[in-house]
Amino acid sequence: MSEIKKEEVTKDHSHVQHVEPYTPQFGTMIPSGTQKFMRTCVLWQIVRFVAINIKMSVLILKSHH
């Protein structure tokens, strides 16, 4: 059972947390600090917002027959 400790939650995923070896969680990728920063970096996210909207629009155009 993964237990979240108080100090891990205060910064809302601001650092790479401890993952218990040999648990299913240990076998996957964990975001780096840079990755987490970019996820909430407003300037970069504005770029991504435009990109996601373009991607979804293309998807919609390709889907109508």
Binding site: M1, S2, E3, I4, E8, H13, Q17, V19, P24, Q25, F26, G27, T28, M29, I30, P31
Partner: peptide
Amino acid sequence: KVFAESLYAERGMDW
């Protein structure tokens, strides 16, 4: 699979 597992692991959730 990797994408979803990563999200769960990051948030300390079991599956």
